[in-house]
Write a protein that binds this DNA or RNA. Sequence first.
DNA 1: CAGTGGTCTAGACCACGGT
DNA 2: CCGTGGTCTAGACCACTGT
Lengths: 230, 230
Amino acid sequence: MAAVSWQMVKAEALRRISDREWLPGQLIPHEADLAAELGCARTTVNRALRDLATSGLLERRRKAGTRVPLNPIRKATFEIPIIRQDIENRGLAYGYALLLQDDGTPEADILNSLRLPTGSHLIHVTALHSAAGAPFCLEDRWINPAAAPGLETADLGKISANEWLVQNTAFSGGDISFGAVNADDATALRLACAAGTALLTIRRVTWAGAVPITSVTLTYAPGHRMVTTI
Amino acid sequence: MAAVSWQMVKAEALRRISDREWLPGQLIPHEADLAAELGCARTTVNRALRDLATSGLLERRRKAGTRVPLNPIRKATFEIPIIRQDIENRGLAYGYALLLQDDGTPEADILNSLRLPTGSHLIHVTALHSAAGAPFCLEDRWINPAAAPGLETADLGKISANEWLVQNTAFSGGDISFGAVNADDATALRLACAAGTALLTIRRVTWAGAVPITSVTLTYAPGHRMVTTI
DNA sequence: CAGTGGTCTAGACCACGGT
DNA sequence: CCGTGGTCTAGACCACTGT
């Protein structure tokens, strides 16, 4: 292609950053100047610089201009894999076991993240995902019954809670958080590790507008890390 | 503004998803159709749908079209705050103490993430960040001396290792990972918690081209979570 | 007030990838 | 093969914000 692509502009900008032609803290040329210099439309430069800004490698402000930040690595996008695919992609056999399905009141922690009042009664589902027979991750899910009418009659041994929710509830957004917990006795037993072992947890809360649908906490087997590259 | 903005298109698409007008797994109308329907240029629709795709709320493929994914919450972008700002934003006094600065060979774990051979000799810096006098996070940094000539003569009590590196090394990319560890005795002492407590860790590795510059592991005080919203 | 990035448009061509 | 998203262009106007 004769035209200069925004990826080429991005690559050139990256090169100037890593070659220290553009120093941290410094302003870089205006979009119009770069467009003229590189021989492309300003739109193309804009796309490239905007992209770098979303990864935190540039900082842009109207009127103030674009500058190389002093501290670039401040944004990270993680792909949170579907557990089954994650395991199968490693060439391992995937296993799923429903451990428990009942009702109850979750910890204050979880109620807070769902913004439900203390004492709320929710549906509770626990399951274990395993890889090649070894425990991989424990799923602890709480579902707001008001957001999931009909779930009581579903057989969660046949259809996973996630699948049921996808098919039967609306969805508009969510929160995700990472944390660390010590394995309690039950968890240690399930994940075949010593009680007290530090485990990485990921909690996802999903919403239908302002109505909380579900909170899922995934507790990974020891040593698991979530990794991403900038 | 008379024109339809891409944010409006995005909002409308989001509404259709959460109102289940577009169901999970289903194809949605082509860009051209939507542009005609909403009364804007195809470019604008493209921008909106592309944006939704990067947050994982839509899946797009050439020829195949755009569909609502069955499992939307699979990407999460985390803002990793500058610790000092993080603490000061909470209205707390920030404190920094350099604990140690010497040389040595890090664990295999860290050498692997830097892709350096076993036994490599690196510069080692440890520091404690505190909030309102309470320990907040422990910083354990290893620096590749080959990538940081002159660092030996720097006084890291006056200028932080991070600042020195920003001013003196190139930068082209990095890796970030989250994990969980049990506090060892030294860490427990520093973070004023019981030995064995589960702690969240964030490790950042930065590169200048193929040359590893530094690996920083931040170990947060108990209970810390990294949170983001989709 | 004025400079800089942000966005919209209309039209064109291209590349990927189902069929 | 050919439909669909991906991208480029040239030009215009807008919105935010430092001075």
